[in-house]
Design a protein around this nucleic acid. Structure first.
Length: 262
DNA sequence: ATGGTTGCTTAGCAA
């Protein structure tokens, strides 16, 4: 029985474009589970064998061109559930859940929302409500659960490089932040922020305008854990190194560790 | 600054 469980989440912005970097990162970081978002590939075209060669199983809920989520894990993922499972006829592949190491791990790619007032924004807010309903329908706040992914919400001004410029913009509106708080109201803790009260820590930087070198970012990738699991957190980091250089995703991995329960 | 960069798919969309 390992002493800790290491869990990571990373929006790779196409697993095919990022395959080399993603596999190199996985081989070096060796998390017990990695939640992937924006794989942008159908399940038949996911590089399963390359992950397998590193010792990782993969549970897939893919989609060609847009969206697509996955969970890679050292232990074989159990009880895999794909989608929000609420009878809604939603063709967008944005959620996959599996049990790994006794923890219910969920990889979520929440909608971007484009801009307030658009159909996409309404879909985003509704998707958050559906996700909240999914949690209350299928889970309890007293079980070990980690909801990981790209939420496309910067929860507070501290999560934004220029809060005044971003106020009311997509990812920073009152409605999105309210949806985020309702989600957390299930009984979830923002694991990174709980350990790191300091400003200037972001997980996403726009490709344009040299945003990364100037650290003009937002913290929109999160690990939300139920309180019992969150209380066992022994580390939480954002791997800025993975955002550096050529052919990087616009997101960095968020990595957390939990002491194993006894 | 209705700009700018990247990826998928091939001119336009999404982020």
């Amino acid at each position: 029985m390992p002493l800790a469980m290491k869990l990571a989440t990373w929006n790779v912005n196409s697993i095919r474009a990022r395959q080399e970097r993603a596999l190199a990162w996985l081989g070096a970081a060796r998390p017990d589970a990695l939640c992937l978002q924006e794989t942008k590939v159908g399940d038949a075209d996911f590089p399963v064998e390359e992950f397998r060669a590193l010792g990782y199983h993969v549970a897939l809920h893919g989609q060609r061109t847009y969206n697509g989520v996955a969970i890679a894990s050292l232990e074989e993922p159990r009880d895999v559930v794909r989608g929000l499972d609420d009878g809604d006829d939603d063709p967008q592949a944005r959620l996959i859940a599996a049990t790994v190491g006794g923890v219910r791990v969920i990889s979520a790619y929440c909608p971007n929302g484009q801009a307030p007032g658009t159909d996409k924004f309404a879909y985003k807010l509704r998707w958050f409500e559906r996700l909240s309903a999914y949690l209350t329908r299928r889970h309890r706040p007293d079980e070990p659960l980690a909801l990981c992914g790209d939420f496309n919400v910067a929860p507070e001004p501290i999560d934004v490089h220029d809060p005044q410029a971003w106020e009311g913009q997509t990812m920073c509106t009152l409605d999105e932040r309210a949806a985020w708080r309702r989600l957390c109201g299930f009984g979830l803790v923002d694991v990174y922020r709980a350990r790191h009260p300091e400003p200037g820590r972001y997980s996403w930087w726009d490709y344009r305008q040299l945003a990364f070198p100037f650290n003009k970012g937002l913290r929109i990738d999160h690990v939300l854990a139920t309180e019992g699991l969150a209380s066992r957190c022994i580390a939480a980091e954002i791997d800025r190194e993975a955002r550096k250089g050529k052919q990087a995703s616009d997101h960095a991995p968020v990595v957390v560790e939990f002491a194993t329960a006894h």
